[in-house]
Amino acid sequence: MNIIDVSKLVFEYIRRDDEGNVEGITTAIDHVDMEIKQGDFVAVLGHNGSGKSTLAKHLNAILYPSEGTVWVDGKDTQEEENLIPIRKSAGMVFQNPDNQIIGQIVEEDVGFGPENLGVETKQIWERVEESLKAVGMYKYRKKSPNRLSGGQKQRVSIAGVLAMHPKCIILDEPTAMLDPSGRKEVIRAVRALNEVEGITVILITHYMEEVIHADKVYVMDKGRVEMQGTPKEIFAQVDKLRSLRLSVPQVTLLAHELKKSGVALPDGILTTQELIEELKKVR
C-alpha cells in the first residue's frame, strides 16, 4: 500500500491588498500527482518558491487541497476526524531549528508529542529514550536546546517526531540553515531511520548532494512536478536542472563538463568511483 497518495492536487490562495480587496489568485500547487511507497526515501527538489514547502504542508494536514485529494496512510486529509491520526503517522520537521523546539530541556521537548497523544507517563519515557538514541542525542537529554548546535537541534526535532511513532517523516528543508557538518549529521540520522527503522522519508531540499541516495526524486517548478525519476535519471539532465534554478552534485557536474569536452561518458554519474570506472574505460 502507498503511505502517501496525492491525486490531482491543486492549492490556490487569494491575494488581498491592504484594504482586503481581492487582488488575484495564486496557484501554489498545480495538479500534482504523487505516490510514495512505505519504506521509500523520496526527495523533492525545487528552487525557493517552487511550491515544494506548500506541498509538504499538505502531507501533514496543515494545509488542505483546493482541488484533488491527499491520502496519508489511507486517510483523506480533508476529513476532520483523520487529522490527529494523519499527523501521528506523518510527522514533520521544519526548516528553522529554533522555531520548532517547544521544551526548555531536550527530553521535555521530545516528550511533547507523546504527551499530546495521551501516551502513558512510563511509555513516554521509553519513547523519549529510544528516539533520542536513534538520532544519537541521548547524552544531551538534560541540556537546554539553546546550548546545542544547529545540527543537534534538528536531530532533537527529528527525535520529537520519532517519539510519536510515525510511519513517515516529512522534512521540509531541514538543513537549509545549517553549516556543512550540521547538514551531514542530520542527513546521516535521516538515512539511518530509513534504512534501519524502515521509516518512509520525504526530504525536501535544494542541496543536490543530499538526494543521491534517494529511491526517487521529484523536481518541482511553478507548483508542478517537472521531473521525476531515480537520482541517476534526474541528474543526467544537467541543463534542464539548471533551467529550473537547480544544479547537480559536483561529481556529476565534472562528468558533464568532461563529456562536453569530448570524453565519452554516460549521463548521470553520481559518485567519484563511478566516474573513475568510466574514465578507466576510455583511457
Binding site: 525557493n48 537549509a176 540553515m177 535544494h206 534554478r245 537547480l246
Partner: peptide
Amino acid sequence: TAGLDPKG
C-alpha cells in the same frame, strides 16, 4: 548565500 537555492 545562506538559505538560497543553487541559482540564487
